[in-house]
Design a protein around this nucleic acid. Structure first.
Length: 564
DNA sequence: TTAGGGTTAG
């Protein structure tokens, strides 16, 4: 009966639920358990165990799968084999349950020694990458002599995903693209799964031409534009500043699921297109596509970026009232952000105190950011106190507070904050800007002179400075951290990575194409006002992606309408 | 007969 049930994926879970009440694997390994089903089967084979464990693991019943594995261990025979572990590692990786996975790894060594096969090896690689142990994954990958497609996909995905947990570091995405190159040289043909990872890496890097190449490859080689690939493409085009191409992909799909919609709404939101985002949400709702909690995260983002406070609030309230979705901490974060940015600091503060869960760092950072924009030092200090408890090592939080003081010319306080940072050995995350030019990605940091065309770039920076001055640009020096002289501050501003990137693009690119820049932090006020003017002076469209959203500079104005 | 690789938000 059990095997028949499995074949139809209607395995009677209720009969195995007794396993789920068992303690977790870490405390059960090697112990013996009374069980009903397996005790009723005389001499269950390892095949039967493996089949059940796999079915349980792939239906997200990790705990029961692990308990069944414990049951297997509690008997002398049969012994686990090569087929037993991959599904367990996969399930542990999806949570991820690192301690259970580590225990399993120890068991692999105990039961199989070093004789396990490449399937198991690759599943270990994958498990460690899901737990964020990229170096370990790479080590395991390097041990594989002739990696097959799945092994390549595992390692490319691992690197492509590396950036999302560490948004200051583009290098893991670049490594993903290098690995993809290597894979092609080894004559392994990529499939849809490879491209989901590759396109994801391009999205994070803002590497439009590589992303578009991947899209063309998919079409040329008849790969399927399935929902994974489609979502990745929509996301990539949106994050590379080509919202129209994202819409084109979205419109071309015969069927759209929740994730496609979420990705498209998110794309519209980061481009400040709140009205189309609301329109799409309504279509989604009308067409009976399930909305989920991510849909509301992205909708709240759309409202926040456009400053549509009351509508955003209504959207938040409708989650529970209309859709029966309980707001999570992310939604409260969006609400605080929405109110705070709009200057409704008291309301934002009230949300923080009244929310049903303990506010996390994201919430306090939103409040701190809002305090900075609206110059509320008291609230800023309060938010930072909570933030430093939760994230004692993060320099960005101190920088935000320091900016509040600098904005108000409280240089003594700026010095105090800087001293705390210095004493604690905390550094600000360095800002960098990426520009893609003819398929190559150029990275610039503050005051960067490492680029081969550095002389031309700095000559252009000088020229930009002169022309900005002629057009009446007054550098907004409030956001410079230190109480240096005005002239020095202006210098510090003019060598911000995004300005260097713009100068490089003016020097090196065809004057008819838009300048595309990806910045890892938020754009500063001075760079923002300079970019607006530069778009007018040089007649160039500048599309700048910062950590949160896009700015399209055209004819001296920005698509964010200076609200960010 | 049983095993590994993929999407959005934060």
């Amino acid at each position: 009966m059990i095997t028949t049930g499995l074949a139809h994926h209607t395995f009677p879970l209720s009969r195995l639920l007794l396993f789920s009440s068992l303690p977790p694997l870490s405390s059960t390994l090697g112990s013996s358990y009374p069980t009903s089903i397996f005790n009723q089967i005389p001499n269950p084979t390892i095949f039967l165990y493996n089949t059940l464990i796999s079915a349980l693991a792939s239906t997200n019943n990790t705990h029961i799968a692990l308990s069944l594995y414990s049951h297997l261990l509690s008997h002398k025979t049969p012994n686990p084999n090569n087929y037993t572990y991959p599904s367990l590692f996969k399930a542990c990786g999806s949570h991820p349950w690192i301690h259970h996975g580590l225990a399993l790894h120890a068991h692999v060594l105990k039961f199989l020694g070093s004789t396990y096969d490449h399937f198991l090896h690759a599943s270990l690689l994958n498990f460690y990458s899901k737990c964020g142990k990229l170096e370990l994954s790479r080590y395991l990958f390097n041990q594989i002599q002739d990696p097959d497609l799945a092994a390549w996909n595992s390692i490319i995905s691992a690197y492509a995903h590396g950036t999302s947990t560490c948004s200051d570091d583009a290098s893991s995405c670049i490594e993903a693209l290098f690995l993809f190159d290597e894979m092609q040289m080894s004559l392994i043909r990529p499939n849809e799964i490879t491209f989901v990872a590759v396109i994801g890496a391009c999205a994070d890097l803002g590497a439009l031409s590589q992303g578009a190449w991947a899209h063309a490859y998919i079409e040329r080689h008849g790969l399927e534009l399935n929902r994974f690939v489609a979502t990745a493409l929509i996301d990539m085009y949106a994050k590379c500043g080509c919202i129209n191409l994202a819409i084109q992909v979205f419109d071309s799909l015969p069927k759209r699921d929740t994730m496609c919609y979420n990705s498209m709404i998110r794309g519209l939101a980061i481009h400040g297109l709140a009205r189309p985002a609301v329109g799409l949400f309504n279509v989604m709702d009308r067409d009976g596509v399930a909305v989920d909690y991510v849909t509301f995260v992205v909708m709240m983002c759309a409202y926040a970026h456009a400053g549509l406070v009351d509508e955003g609030r209504r959207c938040f309230n409708s989650m529970n009232e209309v859709y029966g979705i309980e707001p999570k901490i992310e939604h409260y974060g969006c609400l605080v952000d929405l109110l705070g940015r709009a200057g409704r600091l008291d309301e934002a503060h009230e949300v923080v105190w009244k929310m049903p869960m303990r506010p996390n760092a994201v919430i306090w950072r939103s409040l701190l950011g809002a305090s900075r924009i609206h110059g509320n030092m008291e609230l800023g200090e309060l938010a930072l106190r909570h933030l430093t408890e939760l994230e004692p090592e993060s320099g960005g939080n101190y920088v935000l507070l320091s900016n509040i003081y600098a904005n108000m010319n409280h240089w003594e306080d700026v010095r105090r904050v800087r001293k705390v940072m210095k004493d604690k050995g905390i550094n600000k995350m360095p800002g960098h800007s990426l520009v893609e030019m003819d398929g190559e990605i150029h990275e610039f940091i503050l005051g960067d002179r490492a680029h081969p065309r550095s002389r031309e770039i700095y000559a252009m920076l000088d020229e930009m400075g002169r022309r900005l001055h002629e057009y009446g640009h007054k550098p907004s020096t409030q956001e410079v951290l230190f109480d240096m002289g005005e002239e020095e501050k202006e210098d510090a501003l003019s060598y911000h990575s995004e300005k260097i990137a713009i100068a490089f693009a003016l020097v090196a690119s065809d004057s008819t194409v838009p300048i595309r820049i990806i910045k890892n932090l938020r754009v500063c006020g001075d760079c923002h006002s300079s970019a607006k003017l530069i778009s007018r002076i040089y007649g160039r469209e500048i599309i700048l992606r910062d950590r949160i959203r896009f700015h399209h500079f055209r004819y001296g104005a920005c698509s964010c309408l200076d609200y960010w």
